[in-house]
């Protein structure tokens, strides 16, 4: 920080302000998480009696002995939480894999092939981008009813496999980062079309692939309205629906709700920490590169 002279005082103040503001923003954002993490370990009496940790004789003036894993044990014994976790992982990972592959294939075809009806498909995809999902709730429910797919995973997975948004994203990416010459030479080398796609094209769009997997995984993990409407058997419920059903008019099990929320958001947070860079790049690529 040597080169600054007269302005250094001013700069110092503005730097301090920046740190103060950012720290404040982070504190405000993280406070609910801290509250959640603490609340999940509190017992019924302390839950609303103290805002954060119960005060006591222990280290830092906290009654640590009043905290317990009780709420966590309860969600796994009294409720079927292990099952809900399995369902969520199943739905999110399967949807992510299937929709990513479908979207990548569709995007590839639209970007790198000439075929009859291509412009029509492209127009349909672009139109579909502006259709709000809630509009399709009622007719989809009716369709699933007639197909006898209500209360089944197929009823949730099949509609999620055709993401117009994903096809659109992958088409853009393929146009930018898959050179036609490379595909040509692969063909000349006698490489089959599917093989070309999986071994040459997909690795080229690796960042987009990671980002889209993550977007789709997160979207399914946090999806509530579709499983809520389509599933009826509690054994099939993902975390979002299972957790939401703990809130009731006459009595809400707050200890279990907070413990359940913590368990529900932890895997996603972990996944994000691992894939942070890819995710952010994928998110912003559509907007920023334009």
């Amino acid at each position: 920080m040597r080169p600054f002279r007269k302005a250094s005082l001013l700069l110092g103040i503005s730097q301090t302000m920046t740190y103060v503001l950012l720290t404040l923003a982070s504190l405000v954002t993280l406070a609910p998480f801290y509250w959640l993490a603490v609340a999940a370990f509190k017992n019924k009496e302390d839950f609303f009696a103290y805002n954060f940790l119960p005060p006591g004789e222990g280290l830092f003036g906290v009654a640590w002995e009043r905290l317990s894993l009780g709420n966590f044990t309860r969600i796994f014994t009294e409720l079927d939480f292990a099952n809900n976790i399995l369902n969520s992982v199943f739905l999110a990972s399967t949807t992510a894999v299937l929709s990513t592959i479908t979207a990548a294939m569709g995007g590839y075809a639209l970007a790198r092939f000439e075929f009859r009806g291509r412009n029509l498909v492209l127009a349909v995809v672009l139109t579909a981008l502006v259709i709000p999902a809630p509009l399709l709730l009622a007719p989809s429910y009716q369709l699933l009813y007639h197909l006898n797919l209500l209360d089944s995973y197929a009823g949730l997975l099949l509609p999620a496999v055709a993401p117009a948004f994903g096809v659109f994203l992958f088409r853009q990416t393929m146009l930018n980062s898959v050179p036609p010459s490379l595909i040509e030479s692969a063909r000349i080398d006698g490489c089959g079309e599917l093989r070309t796609f999986f071994t040459i094209v997909l690795p080229l769009v690796r960042p987009m692939l990671g980002a889209y997997l993550m977007i789709s995984f997160l979207g399914t993990w946090n999806n509530f309205i579709n499983p809520q409407i389509i599933l009826q058997d509690a054994e099939k419920f993902p975390l979002s629906v299972a957790l939401a059903s703990l809130q009731t008019a006459y009595r809400s099990e707050y200890g279990m709700i907070t413990a359940g929320t913590l368990v529900s958001i932890a895997p996603v947070a972990l996944l994000f920490l691992l894939l942070q860079k890819e995710f952010i790049r994928g998110l912003t690529s559509g907007a920023v590169k334009e």
Binding site: L86, F90, S93, A96, V97, Y153, T199, L202, P203, M214
Partner: peptide
């Protein structure tokens, strides 16, 4: 052929298949 695919896709594939079996 499989080796060329991104690890994230493969990992999720495995997870998805495992869960499907369990379900």
């Amino acid at each position: 052929m499989i080796g060329a695919l991104p690890a994230s896709l493969l990992a999720l594939c495995v997870v998805s298949m495992l869960c499907t079996a369990l379900v």
